[in-house]
Design a protein around this nucleic acid. Sequence first.
RNA 1: GGAGAGAUGACCGAGUGGUUGAAGGUACUUGUCUUGAAAACAAGCGUGCCCGCAAGGGUACCGUGGGUUCGAAUCCCACUCUCUCCGCCA
Length: 414
Amino acid sequence: MIDIQFVRDNPELVKEKSEQKGYTVDVEGLLALDEQRRQLLTDVEAKRAERNTLTATMKGGKPSPKQIEQGKILKDEIQTLESQLQPIDDKYLSLLVSIPNPAEDDVPPGGEHDGQEIKKNGTGKSQAEDHLDYATARDWVDFERGAKVAGAKFYFLKGDLALLENAITQFALQVIQRHGFTLMTVPHMVNAKTAVGTGFAPRSSEQSDEYYVEGEDLSLIATSELPLTGYHADEVLDEVNLPLLYAGYSPCYRKEAGTYGKHTRGLYRVHQFNKLEMYVYSLPEKSREMHEKILKIEEEIWQQIGIPYRVVNIAAGDLGFPAAKKYDIDYWSPVDGKYLELTSCSNCTDFQARNLNIRVRRQDGTITPVHTLNGTAVSLARSLVAVIENFQKDNGKLEVPPVLRLYMNNREEI
RNA sequence: GGAGAGAUGACCGAGUGGUUGAAGGUACUUGUCUUGAAAACAAGCGUGCCCGCAAGGGUACCGUGGGUUCGAAUCCCACUCUCUCCGCCA
């Protein structure tokens, strides 16, 4: 959630920034409730102070009937005030959490198509065979049987393609380990508190992309960002230990409801895929720098594998609720003749940390929310699409990118 | 899944209705002593929110949520988690 003090100090800016992200928020309503809430809180606390003073006079001895009578009156008054405060408090909180994290000033305005290309690397081929036809012909992927055992958009990877997935994972893991990330396996389900705190839609929401476990307070994770954010919930971290660099490896489960019409063929958009994720807990003043660093690591991975790509500074309207800034890396698709999203990294500033009460004790003794960042190292199903499209050889084989051969029994092609 | 025990501050650990935000200890910070360190001694040492320019004041918090009471860490109810034993099991 956003800092209420920031809203009090910058009501117009908050409104503007929210609209820029595509959210209509009731800032005036929030501030009015904030005002009411503080007034009532002051009243309640004054009454409680009265009660505390009264009970202090009754310590030990037997209270007189008169004292008890006075206590009963105070009790009623407190209850009345509290019952007035409760609904205001609830409404106040629901309005507060409806405000998205404002985009940073260097985020371009606009929506999905307004991202700003800030870099291009490598030149791609002009054409290639569609990855699904290519992989199916070689018996590397089986969507039909995936549908049989689970449903549409589920799949089996087989043989060399499954091995290639493993190779990409291993390679990426080596890269990020060199940069200081600690590998973690994580729970593949999280409770509502963690999911909502991370910024994912609550169970009741229509637009939720998560799978829920019936009868349990659990949802399947859409990314290891969820458990990795919850990992330090309700903790006060020590400044000397920051930044904390975690690498989460897990399957990601997504309903992908409402994505029809988007690029959906084959492995590009599926209900389940494995992902190696970088996650960072950072000092507030270091988070922008960390964000650039995560981007550099992602670039390093794709440069070394040899995939042509571009980097896009995502526009405000396409950022998502908790992110203040996001970079996507889009790979060159010779099949579609354009760039398609491959990875992304976000700076969520103190937004998730506020929700989940994750703070840092500074050297000077003050305590403040940390900043959290996440970035894809490799998102597997999609990485396979990028490699298949960009490494087809004339002899009908798929070249194994040189840096991956170490993890593929030194094979040069498959 | 069954039975039992438990959950208190950074940590250990007292506390079963009334100066308890919480004894005592450890750790930490500062000071005295010391050539320096250790030891010893002294002082300090939770978080959120509200009011206040500040100094400071108020309030809440002893797993979570309800309840009883003039008053709850302490009594009652529900839930969550941890530990031990049994069962099951990769």
